[in-house]
Amino acid sequence: MSKMSKEMIHLLGNYGHIGFTFVAAIFVGMGGGIYLDRKVFDDRTTPWFTFIGLAFGIAAGFKSLFDIIIKQQDKD
């Protein structure tokens, strides 16, 4: 394999998963919030835990993005 395509595959491996990781964190956060609202508190708190979960999910998404960047900076 040539040098160019090897580097390309390394870049794809290191950065190709950023989008999925970000979205998955938001989905997990919001899903947890919805679960708390619907199942644990029986719709008594309805919009609140969903929004709190969404906020934490977005924060977790940015945190995992941040981790990827920090890890790459350490390596270089």
Binding site: H17, F20, T21, V23, A24, A25, F27, V28, G29, G32, F56, G57, A59, A60, G61, K63, S64
Partner: peptide, 18 residues
């Protein structure tokens, strides 16, 4: 704590769904 837990569970989702 919630952020880290969410980010950790998200690994399960992102790794499989990707």
């Amino acid at each position: 704590l919630p952020i880290e837990i969410i980010a950790n569970v998200a690994r399960l989702l992102s790794l499989s769904i990707r």
